[in-house]
Amino acid sequence: MTRPALALCALCLLAACDGPLSTLQPSGPIATEIAWLWWAMLAGAALITVFVLGLLAMGFGAPRKTQARVWTHGLGLWFSMAILGSVLGAGLWVGERILPRDDGAVTVQAHAFQWGWEFTHEDANGAAMRSTDLLHIPAGQPVDVLITSEDVIHSFWVPQLAGKMDAIPGRTNRARLKADTPGIYDGICAEFCGVGHAHMRFTVQAHADWPPDLSDEGTEQQEGAP
């Protein structure tokens, strides 16, 4: 195959990874770091698979003199520990960078119920603004989502912005999101929650200005000031 054809194939494959819920089309630094982690692990896994299957293929042949310790200790223990240690290290490094921390990030609330989401953010006056199935966040800065549930366990997931976090009755969980640019991002409930699970979707709208001026839109209701 010629080089342009290969490049075209690769492009097609990458394009095939796109979609409003795709973790491989990240739109924020958190999801981007995880996507890079995935591509690196995929490359490593592919190499290891080829290596092991190569050893397997070479096993079909005349008997060879071979030392047990090379296999059980050399490959089994040290080779695998080296690989696993570096993967674990990469995971911890990325994990540390994407954790929510106490840095005064904007905080919004997500309350899950069968089957939908009630989101709350504060407007300029500090009043609670509620919306159903539409979450407003600022673009370009970290946002912590405090996640709770009304009834059963759900899971809050916006694949293009960050990983998921469960909504568990009786607890409050915190997840950090960050969107690079203003825009609309899709979200979905990831934990099976009954008959309406497949339709428990929501949208995240990232605004350039914060708090956003929502006076034109009819979906929000303003609560009394706290």
Binding site: V52, L55, L56, M58, G59, F60, G61, A62, P63, R64, T66, A68, V70, W71, T72, L75, G76, L77, F79, S80, M81, L84, V87, L88, G91, L92
Partner: peptide, 29 residues
């Protein structure tokens, strides 16, 4: 996370011991 990764080590020991057995012997298909 570390414990979950670590459990792959004994599994790898077995996989490589089996492949080593094939190198040592004469596999028949």
């Amino acid at each position: 996370s570390a414990a979950s990764v670590l459990v792959a080590v004994p599994t790898a020991v077995q996989v490589f011991a089996w492949i080593g057995t094939m190198w040592k012997g004469h596999p028949q298909l």
